[in-house]
Design a protein around this nucleic acid. Structure first.
Lengths: 211, 211
DNA sequence: CCTACCGATCGGTAGG
DNA sequence: CCTACCGATCGGTAGG
């Protein structure tokens, strides 16, 4: 997947062709839901077109290949996450703020099952060697571990980590926790409260209460 | 999925039709791999037949529907897990033994990527409302949480849990950790060592070293 | 040369 | 286990 084309198109203001941009946004939203429900490979361009009230040829005018649509969906999801973390204080400098922001993100996701489904389904589907989203997820997890590692290092330097906690593996562990909770929550939403679970685990790791 | 038919067939000794039973086992093994690589819905009966050196009609002689094959694959995986936990000491009575057995199971799985793939891919695919394996996974997670909850209760009664640990949410948290680690390991096998991560987390939760 | 689509059809493949 | 099929649907492309 080439990121350049899609990113440039997304960066363009929609003022010149408002109708087309609205249609694009509608298609991305429908694909977001469909990929989350049945995965990328099992989602059908015909069904997506029908859901958007356009013909398949109309759909292919906006997204010439199924992969280009996947790319646009992942970019939109990326922008949503970025918006959440930029809106929220000093999450990139203060470790406690980072985890406070993470709890809010998990709570926000729990209120939007479509978001949870998309990543739970796509991330495991993308573990296949030939999956078009595999490079995206490899890079995304590397970046996520790195960002959380910075937050953990900040907490460690301030002496806020409990003893017996190994900071070297903690980032991958907490990301695994969040991912795994999503699957159990999707299967038993009444049994699992994801923000509560995350907060409980953070209490066993961090010596002070996360705001 | 009806469990009775498959379970009865599996329970039958293969002595009467050794060739058919060998073929059945071969097909289950091939399906195990295929479902893990591309998921249940995306796996094709034609490709499975070809991989086993039989025609599609021949495959359908052993498994009349795709769902019956899914059922057989899940039953085999269930028996493998049971065998592991029964072989291993007093995992059902001693909380420390339970977690020691869990670490060994994770190490065993890491040596067999096919097993990891199958459950990482199927469990998230099965979160779809109409997926045939959804009831299986809902029940499996409920049972897994219950068994681990017993082990945690044993540790709690013996005073082996660290303070600040909430035993009420811990089972779902540790299962989430194991599940989430599988996805990151499948994407970056050189970065993640699953048994090491699990042992590190258990050190922050349990006051003594797990054997 | 641009947009926003349309109806029809290509060669292959799905589960049964 | 085989050949011979079914109704449908897949992602992608044609000219207009």
């Amino acid at each position: 997947m080439t990121k350049a084309a899609g990113a440039a198109r997304q960066g363009t203001a929609p003022r010149n062709y408002p109708k087309g941009e609205r249609r694009r946004a509608q298609i991305i939203e429908a694909a977001f839901t469909a990929f989350g429900q049945v995965g990328y490979r099992n989602a059908s361009m015909v069904q997506l077109a029908a859901a958007c009230g356009v013909s398949r040829a109309g759909l292919l005018h906006h997204f010439p290949t199924k992969e280009s649509l996947l790319e646009a969906v992942l970019e939109q999801r990326e922008r949503q996450d970025d918006a959440h973390f930029f809106r929220t204080g000093a999450a990139d400098r203060d470790g406690l703020e980072y985890f406070a922001s993470m709890i809010r993100l998990v709570a926000h996701n729990q209120a939007n099952p479509v978001i949870v489904s998309l990543f739970a389904v796509l991330s495991s589907e993308a573990t296949a060697a030939d999956h078009p989203a595999r490079p995206y997820f490899v890079a995304r997890y590397e970046r996520a571990r790195g960002q959380m590692q910075s937050a953990i290092h900040d907490l460690s330097a301030r002496g806020l980590l409990r003893p017996h906690v190994d900071p070297s593996t903690l980032a991958a562990d907490l990301i695994s926790l969040i991912d795994g909770l999503q699957v159990q929550w999707l299967l038993s939403p009444e049994t699992i409260d994801m923000p509560r679970h995350l907060r409980n685990v953070l209490r066993t790791v961090i010596g002070v209460e996360v705001p």
